[in-house]
Design a binder for these strands. Sequence first.
RNA 1: GCCCCCAUCGUCUAGUGGACUAGGACGCAGCCCUUUCAAGGCUACGACCGGGGUUCGAAUCCCCGUGGGGGCACCA
Length: 494
Amino acid sequence: MTTKPARTRLAPSPTGRFHLANARNALYSYLLARQTGGQFILRIEDTDQKRFVPGAEEVIVRSLDWLGISPSESPFHGGIYGPYRQTERREIYLQHAQLLVNGGHAYPCFCTSERLNQMRKEQEARKVDRVRYDGTCRLLDPDDAARRIAGGEKYVIRFKMPYEGTTTAHDHVRGDIVIENKYLDDYVLLKSDGLPTYHLAAIVDDHEMKITHVLRSAEWLPTFPLHVQIVRAFGWDEPVWVHPSIMLKPSGKGKMSKRDTAAAMKDGHSIFIDDLNELGYLPEGVLNWIAFMGWGVAEDDVMTLDQMVERFSIDSLTPSPAAINFQKLDHFNGTHIRLLTTEDLAARIKPYLTGAGLDVPHETLLKVTPLIRERLVTLDDSLAFATFFFKDTVEPNPEDLIAKGLDAKQSAEIARRSHEILASLPDISHQTAEPPMREYVERSGYNANQVFGIVRVAVTGQRVSPPLFESMEIIGRENVLERLRNAAQMLEKM
RNA sequence: GCCCCCAUCGUCUAGUGGACUAGGACGCAGCCCUUUCAAGGCUACGACCGGGGUUCGAAUCCCCGUGGGGGCACCA
């Protein structure tokens, strides 16, 4: 591809959590920028001070960093097109709003919210197709308006939307979108607090920051023609507009709600990036999962970030809404876990183990890791599979100690015998331990399931574990023997 | 209610008029491997929303239905 460097942006508001849709827009933006040798930047859209959530900006940056798709310009990274926080750009919007007013594309409006509410009520009563600003202040004499502003009267700046005609906006994913202007409105561009609304701020910033491709969620489609009109009113060139599909809840019925996110969390899943991190997901897995939600690839498969950079194209983005599929997340996560080197995986597992209060010697962890690797879906699954390696004793459930089809007495015998056999061995490596144990299975008349099952529960404290003999080798001779003794005693008392 | 968008297996998707007996992935089922659980391998099941056109020929183009989604703020 011989495209010129793309400048892309992620422009979230610091009003809540950083979720899947944010991450996916960020990913695609990042991919496009890196692929073309351009820049991916982060701009904070904090013009709604009422909804501002302290700390939200940090979560955004942390999430991006964790995913490995950090911006090169942002309030935190700096950059020559800053400031990257909209509240710090007031003057710029003020000037641009004035430009629009001077050009006859916008006008000051003094209508109070009370009047607006009443107006809306009346229009609804009349059952108009589209409730829309009635244009009262459009007719104001400019000098008059200027005097009222000078007099300190509160006002907003509204866009002067044509009452007739149509607007055609071109979305790269969907093609031309045509709408009759009468269904649009005289949107407020500058609020009475002097801060811009999204419509003005985003358009001005994207231009000022030399953004070439605007990637944003399809929720913006309804006001997309407005944005195009604003760009044209300024006389600027349009960026390439790209609206990836909306993400739906797993059932496919609507967007994720509070309820849905809570339900997902109960299931060990989440749409929030910081949650995913804590839940034990890998950034690689999350990225791979997100990548395919709205990006149509013929043979989708595991992909690394670098491979995505290579293969990504805004031409293959899909327009239809996509249901979130957490099972696929699990699949990709497991796959990426298996792709990690032992050292890497061990390092990532460790916090989950130590976090549970376990003392985790690194050498032991390195031996354990290959044993549990293909059993992990998330990193915290390591707790279920590896805890017994790092404890001095285990407390098996007595009932689990009794093998299927046998009674306590027989099971005790097996435990005792196994102890004897293992105790007689020079070492307990799986190479030396397995043959005599298998021989015992043959001779005893019990089956492998029964014998190894008892030993497994005795030694690991659980019915499900990594491979028995390899595990015993790591646990160590003395420890294994003791656990077997305890189990035999337990069984004999039953 | 109005506007906009969308429509291929349960889900994510490939498909840009003939190469489609419609391909892949997840999930699901079965088999193999196996001391448990996984992982892995193999196999099966499984879709072009409906109706009209256009065309020699339509999953692919057009129209109308229907269904789903999104949006109708001095929020983004």
